[in-house]
Design a protein around this nucleic acid. Structure first.
Length: 700
DNA sequence: TTTTGAAGTCTCTCC
DNA sequence: GACTTCAAAA
């Protein structure tokens, strides 16, 4: 990834592998204490930009130097990207010795262990993984089956049901309590909801399906199993040291897993920053990190406070922002970096002016020598970058969007995958249902009947062929039978096989796509990409599991264009930006109701989480930070009108003092003198120059 | 009875 | 723009 040399603090250089690491010279005292900690539990409380990753990497190096075999070290991170990056950095330190270190996400690791140990523990080894959308679809089937849904209008929708279910699994809070707290309007359905959940669980088992939560749940069950089975001990004995990144974003289930993994030894290192806990919506609890010293008696605690990333003015602003938060490990970040200008707080008249400002400023910084890839535009939610993307495209500025799993969530992509999945797991009810509904002449009833018939024939390969469809669906049924048979006919593992399979599916599916959806061109292009990605995988099982667990994290990961070498601007949600840093960061839509989102406003804890999320976003910046918000927001909600908006409540008067204010004028006025055809963009730039005397005068 | 098209309702973050 | 609900068409 980006390993370019930078002018400031010690970062490991891409030198040839070496044998001994000079911990004293390359780490500060606290970092060194953490990295060279011996056996036993260790908590590293690491503020933003304090070299958390670096410390973890050096700890891996230290362990390997101490003679711990790489394969007996497990490094759990939040994203695959983070794991890869850390392992690559470890390799630069200690050379190929580090190759065998196991690194990955909790879910990815669970997947690996379940494929290996599941069969012994009575779990099927050939399960299919349901992603969120799949799980919701299955929940819908259970919802419909329970009968309650039709009679009562107010019964929760599939997404809500799944949310409640997932929350129950990940937090271990009883369903009733979740309803009372979060969904009081559904309390009356507690019993029915319980039935739906029971049906959902049963369906998953019958159909050999595993959702994200199950991956963790089964892992926990394995490591907690009684000694009689000994599987727990065997899994626990796989690793001598376990290191966990972003510990503040783990939930109680994950804490249980770690406890179980440490039943043979107590060599658990966790790194985290309570101020950056932003996954409560997924069941993460800040208590894990706050209570670690109590849960692991005698744990060493090391706090990293020296920031190597940002300039002092940026730190001043972010320290102020987070000082408003409630319970936390107190730490005040400081830096030895000098100079730097105060971050900007930019008031735009409306959203299009906000967009133009950001693009203009990016071009300016680019002209000053900052590569595009060293700049990022951050926002609260994926859709908030829509206008910016259009503008960037229009101006030929290459960008890469992170976060938002849009590609795999797209209906047409899921359609194609459904074909592969029924081949993989003939009992995959969700996929059968999906693809049957695609076929002309087949609707809900016929689809249900077909699935029913297949269930009665024990899901044999020939079962679907034997099913007799109603006349109007005969043609579609025939075509589908033929396709599935031809796909089953030639197994084997030649190169690019999965891509070829998708090609076959498309021979049938592309016409359906053209019929059903509008905007056909981009969708077909998506399928091209899917096919290209698939060709890179050795077999179907690996491909499908990988898609569920390691979805392409950005548009460029999807295969075409923009690989890591290119100089490409990054657009990212605040969540996906976690753990990264850029020379210049723009945080857009800092409007109350957008960031924090209005949905969070009713709940104090959610507001706190939004605050921490904004802290995460702003602390990504090294030298330049600009927070922007438009005064007038066009709301298409009720009867087209502009409404006057307020700056985010997190930027209160005190916090704002750490910023320099920039107020962009109304586009029309200063632009008046200009020849027609030139937009006010030019004015904004001219104005910035006038105001700051050649903006961007921060000492590098 | 089943499918399909059209109008109407919200819209987050991610493994 | 995607999903749900409802009514018309086959």
């Amino acid at each position: 990834m980006s390993s370019d040399p930078r002018p400031y603090p010690p970062r490991e250089r891409a030198v040839a592998p070496r044998r001994t690491v000079d911990f004293a010279a390359e780490l500060n005292d606290a970092q060194r204490a953490a990295a060279t900690h011996g056996d036993g539990p260790l908590l590293i409380v690491a503020g933003a930009g304090t070299g958390k990753t670096r410390t973890l990497v050096y700890r891996v190096a230290h362990l390997i130097e101490q003679g711990v075999p790489a394969a007996r070290i497990l490094l759990l991170t939040f994203t695959r990207r983070a794991a890869q990056e850390m392992l690559a950095r470890a390799e630069r330190l200690v050379g190929s010795h580090s190759r065998g270190v196991h690194g990955g996400t909790f879910h990815g690791t669970a997947h690996r262990l379940l494929r290996r140990f599941g069969p012994e523990a009575g779990l099927p080894g050939d399960f299919t993984i349901l992603d969120q959308g799949d799980a919701e679809d299955l929940m819908q089937l259970s919802r419909a089956g329970a009968g309650v849904a039709d009679k009562t209008k107010r019964f929760p929708k599939k997404a809500t049901l799944h949310h409640i279910y997932s929350r129950h699994v990940n937090t271990e809070i009883p369903v009733g309590a979740i309803l009372r707290e979060e969904f009081p309007r559904f309390i009356e359905f507690e019993e029915e909801i319980g039935k739906v959940f029971a049906d959902y669980t049963r369906r998953k088992q019958d159909r050999n399906l595993v959702d994200y939560d199950d991956l963790l749940l089964y892992w926990a069950m394995l490591v907690e199993s009684e000694p009689a089975r000994a599987i727990g001990d065997r899994i626990g004995a796989l690793y001598d040291h376990i290191l966990v990144d972003e510990y503040q974003d783990t939930n109680v289930l994950q804490a249980r897993i770690l406890k179980g993994m440490c039943r043979v030894h107590r060599n658990l290192t966790v790194v985290g920053d309570d101020a950056q806990s932003v996954y409560a919506f997924r069941g993460a609890t800040i208590r894990n990190i706050l209570d670690f010293p109590r849960d692991y008696h005698g744990a060493a605690v090391v706090t990293l406070e020296q920031n190597y990333r940002s300039t002092q003015p940026i730190l001043d602003a972010t320290n102020l922002l987070i000082s408003r938060a409630e319970e936390r490990y107190s730490k005040e970040l400081y830096t030895r970096r000098t100079g730097g200008e105060r971050p900007w707080l930019v008031t735009a008249q409306d959203d299009s002016q906000q967009t133009r400002f950001v693009v203009d400023r990016i071009l300016e910084l680019h002209e000053e020598g900052i590569p595009l890839r060293e700049m990022a535009v951050l926002f609260r939610a994926g859709y908030m970058s829509a206008e910016l993307e259009i503008e960037l495209t229009a101006r030929n500025i290459p960008f890469d969007k992170w976060g938002g799993l849009k590609f795999l969530e797209a209906a047409h992509v899921k359609d194609v995958l459904a074909f592969l999945r029924v081949l993989e797991n003939p009992r995959d009810e969700v996929s059968w249902y999906r693809l049957l509904l695609l076929m002309p002449g087949i609707g809900e009833t016929t689809a249900r009947n077909a699935i029913q018939a297949m269930a009665e024939h024990a899901w044999g390969h020939e079962a679907f062929g034997r099913f007799t469809p109603p006349p109007r669906a005969r043609e579609a049924h025939g075509a589908l039978v033929q396709l599935l048979e031809s796909l089953r006919a030639n197994p084997g593992a030649e190169e690019g096989r999965v891509g070829i399979e998708i090609g076959r599916v498309r021979a049938l599916y592309d016409d359906i796509l053209k019929e059903r959806y509008d905007r056909v061109e981009p969708r077909l292009a998506d399928l091209e990409r899917l096919q290209a990605i698939a060709s890179g995988y050795p077999d179907r099982t690996t491909f499908l599991s990988a898609l569920a667990l390691e979805p392409p994290a950005s548009t460029s990961d999807l295969g075409f264009g923009g690989d890591a070498e290119d100089d490409v601007l990054v657009l990212s949600t605040a969540h996906s930006a976690k753990g990264r840093e850029w020379d210049a960061v723009f945080l857009i839509w800092a409007v109350d109701g957008w960031f924090p989102m209005s949905r969070a406003l009713g709940d104090e804890e959610q507001i706190e989480e939004e605050r921490r999320l904004m802290y995460v976003a702003m602390t990504r910046a090294r030298n330049h930070l600009a927070v922007t918000f438009p005064l007038n927001v066009y709301s298409s909600r009720r009867g087209a009108d502009y409404s006057f908006s307020q700056v985010s409540r997190f930027l209160d008067r005190g916090v704002r003092k750490a910023f320099q204010r920039v107020v962009l004028e109304t586009p029309g006025e200063p632009a008046a003198a200009e020849p027609p055809g030139i937009t006010s963009t030019v004015d904004v730039r001219a104005m910035l120059r006038a105001r700051f005397g050649g903006a961007g005068d921060a000492p590098g």
